[in-house]
Every structure is written in structure tokens, then in C-alpha cells.
Design a protein around this nucleic acid. Structure first.
Lengths: 230, 230
DNA sequence: AACTGATTTGTACAAGTGTACAAATCATGA
DNA sequence: TCATGATTTGTACACTTGTACAAATCAGTT
């Protein structure tokens, strides 16, 4: 193992950032969590902003690659409703999966994105923007093909709500548990994915002006979530 | 005007918090924005956490009152579909309205809630939780009555996504503009409300196992958003 | 064993943080 | 006019922040 120390730093920092945001986590917090001196951080990363940047580049590419791979599979589905469902899963699942290691995105990284996007930190803002827009646009296009005639405006807003729902499910899962008086487990990520995909499916489906609505409520078939390494 | 200085401080602080979160905003930032010395803040509020608390109590009650008032009106609607739509509007509109003054909630306050909930700051966390749960539970119950037979789990998750979409629309409106290459204006709050309500309507509607789906896509009638003072 | 380059440590620094408090200022009623 | 209480100011404090850098330690090659 070459630079496993650097890996450990990246991993620890990502965890802390995803939990408390960028501003509230000091380099000393990161160092302490990794059992290492502060100086190591400046040595390896130069600056705090650059540490964040490295976390990003570590996760962004694999995650989007996985998404696009699943999107490719989904696009081959003929039936527009099933395709719609598959496309939504392709977008959501890689963001929710609890990945082991720095590979395919994962819930922690997505949570970090969510928190950072809310903080509006200039350092973070710049790093985030361009990394995901292209992928999102590709998905919006694919979604649009499932609901012919739907106006772009509706597609974009709904994709915004999808991401918002995704983020908030990861940021505030306790709320689900609390509101249901413990009857629903907010930390159940499989359930979160299932419901998010179902709800978004219905919201996109309703945009289809031409095809008639299906009468029986369509429930998602739920194979256990798991990522295959690409 | 009695304590207009304190009002100005609260207002300025809310603006800054809603823009950059709690951690990133220092008391000196707040003081500078209000054109006032730092000491005034400790004098009026005692501590930073307490300043936040006062902002919260200032907005929470009127906003929830307005929501519940609109909910009361909505509940009198017989047709479950129209009622569903009205209930959703009752939840969303008061949170989106750009309120003038410290009256009925408003977009800035909601944005602040969104940012703070993401930051996970302990001070903030404690202040937020109980203030809104009760109202949310009331809404979930009302929503459930519009889609008989829908499982609680689905209702709760969908309400979570609703709030997530609401938050993210306020936190990151530029993304909407960007993803659409400028074709859609993310800062158009009326449009945001309309689309959010439409999308959520469809997602709840699909839960109704008994009643048949309506075939023509239902679009929201959109009177211009405006709050009447209670 | 001795040299070399990479890494880790310890420590320092300037800047900024929330909070505290005496002094100055203001507004108001007697 | 003056006394009183509320507000505002200025300044100080202990502490944390990101960053910088010399010294110590480690790993690998000769």
C-alpha cells in the first residue's frame, strides 16, 4: 500500500464534512480523527479547499460513470414506463449506495454534497457546479423521452425536486422516524430509494399528455441494492 | 417605534444566516451589516445561539398559523383531488412567499431553515425540531384523507421529499437556470410553487388505490401568490 | 553503515471567533 | 436642568482558525 495515509485522511475528512459541513470542521478535527498531526494536511493537500477538491474528484467520476452505465442499460428498455422507472433508479441508486471505499459515490459522499450545497461556501460552490451538470442534463433528456410532449420546464423542475428529495432524505432521516412516531425507519436507505423512485415516477408520469394513465398503482420491484464494481 | 434597532438586527441576521448558514456568519458580520457595534448583539441577545432562537420564534408561529389557516379552508373542499391540491398549496405557499416584515414566514426564513438543517449545527438542531413537527403531522394526516388506503410509510416519505424539494428549490435555484441553459428561471418562485405542487400532487395521487386516475393531466390554477395578513 | 528523499511532527504566527464589561451616549420624565 | 435608566460603543480576553516551516523520523538504495 503506497499512500494509505493520504487515503485515510481523505476518508476521514469526507466523513466529517458530510456530518457537519465544511465550515464547522477544522483541519485539526480532521487530523485528530485520522490520528495524525495537522502539518500532514498542509503537506498532502496544501490547503483546506484543496482537500475538499480532492475528495470531490475522488468520488465524482466513478459515481457518474456508474450512473451513466445504468442509464445505458435503462435506455434499451422499450416500454416507456418501465424505462422511466429504470432511468430514475439509475440516477438515484448510485447516490444512495453505501459504497465501501472510494469507488462508486455512495451515500456519505452524496450527503456531503447536500450539506455543502446548502452551506453555499464559495470554495465548495466552485468545485461542485460543473462536476454534475452534464450528467444531470443527460438524465433529463432521457427522462423527457419517456414522457413525450412534456415541457422542458416541468422536466427541469421535477429533476430539481428529485435531487432535493434525495438530499433531504440523507440529511434529515430522523425526521421521517419522528413524524411517523417511530413507525417508519428514516435510515432505511432501500426504503428511501424505493419511495423516492416511486414518487418521482408518478410525478414524471403525470406529464405524459398522450398516453393514458395506468390505473393500477405501479410498485417498484425491489432487488436489494448493491453496486457491482465497474 | 420602540425597539426598531433590535428588529433591524434580527432581520439582518436572518438574511445573512439564510445566505451562508450559521457557522460561516460571525457576530461581527451581523453587526457590520446592521451598521452597529458588536457589543449590541451580546446586549440584546446574550449569545449567538440565542439570536438564532429569536429569529426562529419570530417567524415560526405566524408561518404555521398561516399554514393551518389555509389548511382549514382546504379541508372544506369535498372533491378529494381538489382538496389534495389545496392542502399542498397550503403547506407550500406560506413557505415560499416573500414576506414583507417579520410576519408570515417567507422564502428567506425557509431558506434559512433549509441551510441550517443541512449544517446540522447542534444549537440550530435543537431549535428547529419541535417547532415544525406538529404542523407537519397535521398536514400528513390531512393528505392521507385525500388518498384513502395509502400506507403511512408512503405518506411520510412523500412529505419528506416535498420538504426536500421545497428546500432545494430555495437553496439552489441557479441550478434550474443552468440545467435548462437559461430557458427556465430558477428564481421564479411562482413557477417553483406551481411545479412543486403539481409534481407532489401527482406523487400523492398515485397512492390512491381505489379511485380511478384522471386521464387529462391536471394543471394548477395559478392565482398570483400573495399573503393576506391574518 | 551512510546517504537521500519522502513523510511526519512540533511549534509559531497572524487573523478572526464569541463573549464580557467599563465607559460614553442617548432619551425621557421630574 | 438634572438624574436615571436604557442603549451603544470601544476594547480586552481567551481561544480557535488556516497556514507556514524547521526539525525529527522513516524507508529504501548504495
Amino acid at each position: 500500500m503506497r499512500s494509505s495515509a493520504k487515503e485515510a485522511l481523505l476518508s476521514n475528512a469526507a466523513t466529517l464534512f458530510s456530518r457537519s459541513g465544511y465550515n464547522a470542521v477544522s483541519l485539526r478535527d480532521v487530523a485528530k480523527a485520522a490520528g495524525v498531526n495537522v502539518g500532514s494536511l498542509t503537506y498532502h493537500f496544501g490547503s483546506k479547499a484543496n482537500l475538499l477538491r480532492e475528495i470531490y474528484t475522488r468520488h465524482t467520476l466513478p459515481m457518474n460513470a456508474r450512473r451513466l452505465e445504468l442509464l445505458g442499460e435503462a435506455r434499451r428498455i422499450k416500454d416507456p414506463d418501465e424505462r422511466l422507472m429504470a432511468i430514475l433508479r439509475a440516477y438515484v441508486v448510485p447516490a444512495f449506495v453505501s459504497s465501501s471505499g472510494g469507488d462508486g459515490g455512495g451515500a456519505e459522499f452524496t450527503r456531503m454534497r447536500a450539506v455543502l450545497s446548502a452551506e453555499g461556501n464559495p470554495d465548495a460552490q466552485a468545485i461542485i457546479a460543473d462536476a454534475f451538470d452534464e450528467t444531470s442534463r443527460t438524465f433529463i433528456e432521457a427522462l423527457g423521452e419517456c414522457v413525450p410532449g412534456a415541457p422542458l420546464e416541468s422536466l427541469v423542475w421535477r429533476s430539481q425536486f428529485l435531487l432535493g428529495g434525495l438530499y433531504y432524505a440523507l440529511i434529515n432521516p430522523e425526521r421521517v422516524t419522528r413524524l411517523s412516531n417511530g413507525a417508519v425507519d428514516g435510515d432505511d436507505r432501500e426504503a428511501a430509494v424505493r419511495h423516492l423512485v416511486e414518487a418521482t415516477y408518478a410525478s414524471f408520469r403525470s406529464l405524459s399528455g398522450t398516453s393514458p394513465q395506468r390505473s393500477e398503482p405501479l410498485t417498484v420491484s425491489t432487488p436489494p441494492i448493491q453496486e457491482n464494481q465497474t
